[in-house]
Design a protein around this nucleic acid. Sequence first.
DNA 1: GCCGCACTAGAGCGATCACTCTAGTTGCCC
DNA 2: GGGCAACTAGAGTGATCGCTCTAGTGCGGC
Lengths: 211, 211
Amino acid sequence: MSGTRDRLIEATAELFRRQGYHGTGVKQIVETARAPFGSMYHFFPAGKEELGAETIRRSGAIFGQLIGYFYAAGTDPVAATRMFFDAAAQTVHESDYADACPIATVALEVASMSEPLRLATAEVFESWLTTLDTHLVEAGLTKTQARKLSVSLFSLLEGSFILARATRDHTHVRAAGRAAAAAVRTALEKRATRRADPAERFPESRRSPAT
Amino acid sequence: MSGTRDRLIEATAELFRRQGYHGTGVKQIVETARAPFGSMYHFFPAGKEELGAETIRRSGAIFGQLIGYFYAAGTDPVAATRMFFDAAAQTVHESDYADACPIATVALEVASMSEPLRLATAEVFESWLTTLDTHLVEAGLTKTQARKLSVSLFSLLEGSFILARATRDHTHVRAAGRAAAAAVRTALEKRATRRADPAERFPESRRSPAT
DNA sequence: GCCGCACTAGAGCGATCACTCTAGTTGCCC
DNA sequence: GGGCAACTAGAGTGATCGCTCTAGTGCGGC
């Protein structure tokens, strides 16, 4: 078993979150991970980009689990939303505005620079949206309603992270959380209304990808 | 007059928007601007960081004017919101997912790395919020209501930019725009309700900074 | 014991990083 | 037209970039 490989990914994840992809050097990674330089290229022969892709997927999976934990089956989505944003705000604050989204910085940096890394961030974001979708559908929304709401929740979180880190004011995340919770409540109330129309409950049997 | 100085800033702005601060080299900047290398350090003696700060403020001011244009006095804020997000979605799409927020990438990169640059991004974001606040207060909201809504609009825009660039799907920005317009409509409806309570119209004479 | 492989260890590669320095050119003021 | 500041121009600085390469170590299977 290779603890070194894991340490490399963990160190990279922390550095990426704080200073992004191009702001993080390979040397800094191996020093942080207390790993020998040669080991990095043993485990990731394709170099920094391969380690980056792996780190994005790993960080994304962990954050995705966190989302799943808050929105766990049976939890009220409105309360889950409020609690999730409040917890995020607290983390941002306690980490001195370093720890917000683990991959947002990298996602913006690589979007027009590296297709493999861009794809990794896209897959992670898509998985987060799917997790949210699933729980919102469980709460009674149609797939279409759920997806629209998921995109809003994602955007409110990520956007408020940017604002909070730039201004060093974590209350922006809490404010976005209130708006997010309100949006969830409104959507759930609409759901009750729409129940009357059977055609609306199953608007499509299969989702087609966005064009 | 120094067209060279302007060209340097414009080139830097475009490069920052697409590839961020650390992904953009000084050499690449002077080549893009068709400026001699020496001129860069003539106009910006403190180097890349000074040019970066100037670029952030300039890009921010231009984008701020754009916000002001859409929400101009007399315009319905709901319609303005829908139009602004739709226009943003179109720009993102037409630029092949390169042009979204001019400073978001840099803002995340420098938040924990450079205090002067972080401050520049914070000032820009704050000015955008203030612009939105002003127009929303004109539409009848209290300062408190307006600020909360501005933060939501900002977050929905910036967050959906991240998602759109990563997934190469500009419809996310449109979706966030619908949610944003709905939030504005709801806030304006609440305003009518709250008009009945005079204490709510002027909840505070002076805003205290977030703690 | 010892072979073979996974992994460690770090010196050193060319390229590029932000930046400095000197020299030359331009154009306005007197 | 002489003087001077503003600006142009690019060669060259040390440091760092991502990465390659060779040598060595540790350990399980036979």
